[in-house]
Design a binder for these strands. Structure first.
Length: 616
RNA sequence: GCCAGAGUAGCUCAGGGGUAGAGCACCGCUUUCGUAAAGCGGCGGUCACGGGUUCAAAUCCCGUCUCUGGCUCCA
């Protein structure tokens, strides 16, 4: 399976997408926050774009020799890139904000000025702004060339903007961070300095957004991973390699066991393939030629170079190829929780989400062209089941043929038809991702939305014409001729590391009962009830749940401890409960306590577990 | 890999040329408790690493490593 990329989709990073965003204004800017921002006289995007102009104005007032590059609006805010005589630090931001408020007080109207090319070139040259000259040169002939001006500032810009500075609330924006960014997103070009900010129609919305950012921080899987003792990283042991601690190990086991159940029920078979292979394998697959920088350095084995596997496909293909197949035996569905290693640049490593060693929930389906559609339907249905179980909303995208690609039109056509027909059969709407396919075939990619409204790259289903060709895989068809099977790659979790890292944030560390490493804490009020409490814990453990008995310190301390450890159920036992043979149940997020019999409680827990309930 | 910032106890952080600090966690004792932090005592650090300046460096300078925020990249 190719890289199962699951990463929060950040602000559009590339210049192209930034420009696209600036040119084609969606009626509603992309917004996936858990609150509805207030409306204003123009779009939020126009507001943010305007604030970015005001910021650029402020930065140049403070640093007149600075050069400006681009400053588009992005999701939830804006940025502007500069080349400045000295690097900016966070401490500069309040000073810039102050200058911006001053500008807002005097700016007045935002006006749009359309110039012909000669006049525009003249103006830009006179301003001594080389980046703007380059941008101007790239505006296609015949397109309008516009400048937006406010006060003493003017900028080559597509717009749109607010009408007047009065529409920009002085307390509705904030500069959030500074960062380096390549000019035009090209790592061979100048590193500019970027200031990110956020802007809203009101102080209230800004506050809501900042509170949202705090929530994002509080849920950061690295923070929760440390606090809840879920996982750790040890750069000296190996950068980008995850240590799963017992609690998270439990979560992973549950996910894996369920995954295997689902796959067995759908005709997949487990396979296990070596972690190391001789280099010729990856030459044959084409990965070594095309993605050498991603594959770990070779190791010498008996004088022959070997590589740690960066993907599982060649192994699965090798199994398929180890004997002749009849059309009667197809499709073959090989599944493996396959651990792979990829060299990711040091600056990109990020907790569990971007690592150098990870386990993919990989599977490859080898089928006849005629079976393709039905196989894809099976994958799409399974994907829906899995995503829904975690409470993820999703959108599926059909990624079509890219410019650089292999294979006949007819073959692509067939694969695309199969993907479309499969989606139609289960009434899965497909958004378009034109040219987004891989060079070896089209695919359906899922974007999933987590509890905070953030989008992540989700599952992917890819049709592959390349590997069957490269490994010359065949089956014997009904007409007794050898034919080429179609290969489908698919991963649903993607990688255990990314998926579980994402789950930690999605659930804010409160794993549902079926995953929870410790759903129950038993709290006797005094020593008198300890024996009874131990009895309750034994029953909880016998029912297949983890639980903990806490006896040390006052009750309220143990309640707090349980809450901090994100244990959803607290079973409190005082003299009353023991006398009545009942327990007092405190449930996370539920105000009222409940009294129930021990068996009733165990039944309740089982229901939550077996239904994979998302609430407690 | 690139730009910037940061590395002080397990965690969160203070200190800033003259013998290393706090809270939490952990250990021990006291406390026996009705739903989010009882009290006292103790353990714990080569102040990331290497070099330099200085009578003296955790502190100033240089280099390296790692982490953080972005950028590039993620078949």
């Amino acid at each position: 399976m190719p890289a199962g990329s699951r990463r929060p989709i950040q602000a559009p990073g590339r210049l192209e997408s930034a420009l696209r965003a600036a040119q084609v204004w969606p009626a509603e800017p992309p917004m996936s926050l858990p609150f509805e921002p207030q409306n204003g006289p123009v779009t939020l995007g126009a507001l943010r774009h305007s604030v970015s102009h005001v910021m650029a104005d402020a930065v140049l007032r403070l640093s007149p020799e600075g050069k400006v590059a681009i400053g588009p609006p992005i999701e939830n805010g804006f940025y502007y890139d500069f080349e400045l005589p000295r690097p900016l630090t966070e401490e500069d931001l309040p000073r810039i904000e102050e200058e911006m408020r001053k500008i807002l007080g005097e700016a007045g109207e935002f006006t749009c000025l359309t110039l012909d090319r000669a006049a525009a070139e003249e103006r830009v040259r006179a301003s001594g702004q080389p980046y703007k000259e380059e941008l101007l040169a790239d505006i296609p002939e015949g397109e309008a060339i516009t400048f937006y001006e406010h006060g003493t500032w003017g900028d080559l810009c597509e717009g749109p903007h607010v009408e007047t500075a009065k529409q920009i609330p002085g307390d509705g924006f904030r500069l959030t961070s500074v960062a380096g960014a390549y000019w035009r997103g090209d790592s061979d070009r100048t590193m500019l300095q970027r200031i990110y900010g956020t802007a809203w129609w009101s102080k209230k919305d800004l506050k809501k957004y900042l509170a949202y950012l705090e929530e994002v921080q509080a849920r950061d899987h690295r923070k929760l991973g440390r606090e809840l003792d879920l996982f750790s990283l040890h750069p000296d042991f190996g950068a980008g390699l995850v240590f799963w601690h017992p609690k998270l190990g439990h979560v992973r086991r549950q996910l894996e066991e369920w995954w295997w159940q689902l796959h067995y029920a759908r005709g997949y078979w487990p396979v296990y393939t070596p972690h190391v292979a001789g280099e010729p394998v990856f030459e044959q697959s084409g990965h070594l030629q095309n993605y050498a920088e991603m594959i770990w350095a070779p190791m010498d084995v008996d004088g022959r170079p070997h590589r740690v596997k960066p993907m599982n496909c060649p192994g699965h293909v090798t199994i398929f190829n180890s004997r002749r197949h009849s059309y009667r035996d197809l499709p073959k569905r090989y599944a493996e929780l396959g651990t792979v290693y990829r060299y990711e640049p040091s600056g990109t490593l990020h907790g569990m989400l971007r690592v150098r060693g990870f386990t993919q929930d990989d599977a490859h389906i080898f089928c006849t062209p005629g079976q393709l559609e039905a196989e894809i339907v099976g994958v799409l249905e399974l994907t829906d089941l899995i995503l829904r179980t975690f409470g993820y909303e999703y959108t599926a995208y059909l990624a079509t043929r890219p410019e650089k690609s292999l294979g006949d039109d007819a073959v692509w056509e067939h694969a695309m038809d199969a993907l479309k027909a499969a989606a139609a059969r289960i009434e899965l709407p497909l958004a378009d991702d034109p040219g987004g396919g891989v060079f070896y075939g089209p695919k359906i990619d899922y974007k999933i939305k987590d509890a905070l409204g953030r989008e992540w790259q989700g599952p992917t289903v890819q049709v592959d014409f390349n590997l069957p060709e490269r490994f010359d895989i065949q089956f014997n068809d009904a007409d007794n001729t050898l034919k080429r099977p179609v290969m489908v790659h698919r991963a649903i979790y993607g990688s255990m590391e990314r998926f579980v890292g994402g789950l930690i944030e999605h659930f804010a560390g409160w794993f549902p009962v079926w995953l929870s490493p410790c759903p129950v804490s038993v709290l006797p009020i005094t020593e008198e009830q300890e024996e009874a409490a131990a009895g309750v814990l034994a029953k909880v453990l016998a029912a297949g749940f983890h639980g903990v008995l806490k006896t040390d310190g006052p009750l309220r301390k143990r309640v707090r401890e349980s809450e901090v450890e994100k244990i959803p159920y607290m079973v409190v036992l005082g003299g009353r409960e023991v006398d009545e043979g009942r327990v007092n149940l405190r449930v996370h997020g539920v105000k009222e306590q409940r009294s129930m019999g021990v068996d009733e409680f165990l039944g309740f827990l089982r229901d939550k577990r077996d239904s994979k309930a998302l609430n407690f």
